[in-house]
Design a binder for these strands. Sequence first.
DNA 1: CGCTGGCACTCAACTGACGGGAGTGCCAAC
DNA 2: GTTGGCACTCCCGTCAGTTGAGTGCCAGCG
Lengths: 340, 340
Amino acid sequence: MVDDRKLDVLRAIVEDYVATEEPVGSKALVERHGLGVSPATVRNDMAVLEEEGYIHQPHTSAGRVPTDKGYRLFVDKLATLKPMSMAERRAISTLLDGAVDLDDVVQKSVRLLSQLTRQVAIVQYPTLSRSTVRHVELVALTPTRVMVILILSTGRVEQRLVELDAPIADTDLAELRVAVNQATAGVQIAAAAAALGALPDDVRPEQADSTRAVVGVLTEAMSDHRSDERVAVSGTANLARYGDFDTAVRPLLEALEEHVVLLKLLGESGVDALTVRIGHEGPYSELAATSVVATGYGPQELHLGSLGVVGPTRMDYPGSMAAVRAVARYVSRILDEGNQ
Amino acid sequence: MVDDRKLDVLRAIVEDYVATEEPVGSKALVERHGLGVSPATVRNDMAVLEEEGYIHQPHTSAGRVPTDKGYRLFVDKLATLKPMSMAERRAISTLLDGAVDLDDVVQKSVRLLSQLTRQVAIVQYPTLSRSTVRHVELVALTPTRVMVILILSTGRVEQRLVELDAPIADTDLAELRVAVNQATAGVQIAAAAAALGALPDDVRPEQADSTRAVVGVLTEAMSDHRSDERVAVSGTANLARYGDFDTAVRPLLEALEEHVVLLKLLGESGVDALTVRIGHEGPYSELAATSVVATGYGPQELHLGSLGVVGPTRMDYPGSMAAVRAVARYVSRILDEGNQ
DNA sequence: CGCTGGCACTCAACTGACGGGAGTGCCAAC
DNA sequence: GTTGGCACTCCCGTCAGTTGAGTGCCAGCG
């Protein structure tokens, strides 16, 4: 049976262990937290908590360490988000308001998040798939080389170069530009790609070839999910603070190289809610010693991507959760503004 | 006096130490390399090499370790570049030929370089300043919001949003587009920014305001050296292979977060030549245990940026040098092709 | 019935002693 | 100039002894 005081004890254990990185014993516990009971009582409670699987003893006559299950209970029941300080809020908003384009927003947020949490931060670039086409621009660099520029509602800009078999007149290009934009402007990207498919049949026959070329590149760019897989990472150096290099740091460093892995870590967080994945709860057994705090972001209810932090299971959950949520909100707001 | 055989001994010491990560003794040396002399002779040579400062003994009765000065001599006099294998060459060219845009080229090269060298690789994005303007495009998203797109010869695309005080007609915008492109197309970016300055005075008075707004944003984008500071990093996980965490790995991890620091590391390599900076030769005392192998890249003689690898002084110099040079050549070629 | 102080017990971590081994420097001989 | 021999140095792993933090259990108390 786990009553209120035992929960208090668990909370104290988690907090102390996160702070000291060392197994925590009954005596130190009552000293550092005003629990109002004797060490012996705490020991009894700890015995129960251990039996229930919330804490664990590295060896007899050592202090206790929270298990994944213990962290889980801590996060679910005990953690109240640390409110962000006024200074932090201001830092977030001034930094992000100064961002000039999408890349800049992403870079700055990931950096910010890593500094706020002193963890490794990950921000996924907004996915193409959920965004709409704002504009398509065609620029003739030479008569047979056209640069196709695709501007999306999220602020993302994709450009591709098209080589034409035959030169194209400026007026024809203008016509094509109008046609393409009519077909796609404001349309969700998947639908836009579909709409473009019919285009070559609708133009004058002598234009069909060039249209086909442009449309081909454009649909390719639209359905290119390569950019969906892009993430920004920052704060790797924070890993240096952690002790057990082989169990905690090395596997994480390796995972950070694999952006696909990162996306899976972030992505499984489902949609928009702030989620915490602790140790073995995640999809990779090598990362059994690392936790993920992540959330989706995007204007209103639209989920454009995810961001979060990863670190050893022994991390400051309340602080990380608050920072992740705060940054996600600001990023969402910025993306929304750019979209008006 | 340092004769040929002593140089051989030094080479052998460097190679063995790089391979084994342990101080190397006279006996092991003659066994692993066919030096044709006895350990005792090698010991005499080592005593001289130590006196001259090329190698160093961690403590009496330990093997020898190369000093920075020793590595320097090794690189200058002894290292012949390991030729890339056919498979490696093919891997480089197929990977980089598949790149779709500038971002992609940079990302792929940095990844490639880290895999080839098993080190941390760094690639600087091509600087704006040396490139010329290929095209400027103005797109009216709404009558008072114009997206300005700046396309540079390197393939870089910058976009900015301009809010106008008054609506602008499509015909006026077209006129402005022509004027801007006439002033800047093919011109080096610094000169282009200057040329734009005069533009507001040359247009019809009622257009001056909107022109000023567009030109302002454009010159800002051109003189924005923020993007000059962008670098891509890959292969951090390779650091995990190295032993001495505190001296070698941690400072480097921290430096990797500071892109400015990285640029300085790469950048001081001067212009185009393949340069090797060993330990204390670099600008940062905290990075006394790390070396940099870097080179410039860019089509023909034009220096657009630098790329290279960083790692502990105990690294495979010949291999790294060869890989860095090979990747730089391929990147240069790709950039050149895109530019025709 | 739950809390508490006391007490014996356990076990990692530190300490110091010790021997093995790799490596050196020096010297006499070739 | 090179080599084999030899005494010497010093790191490193091992082992026993000690310390101390922390536990589990139990009897007593409110």
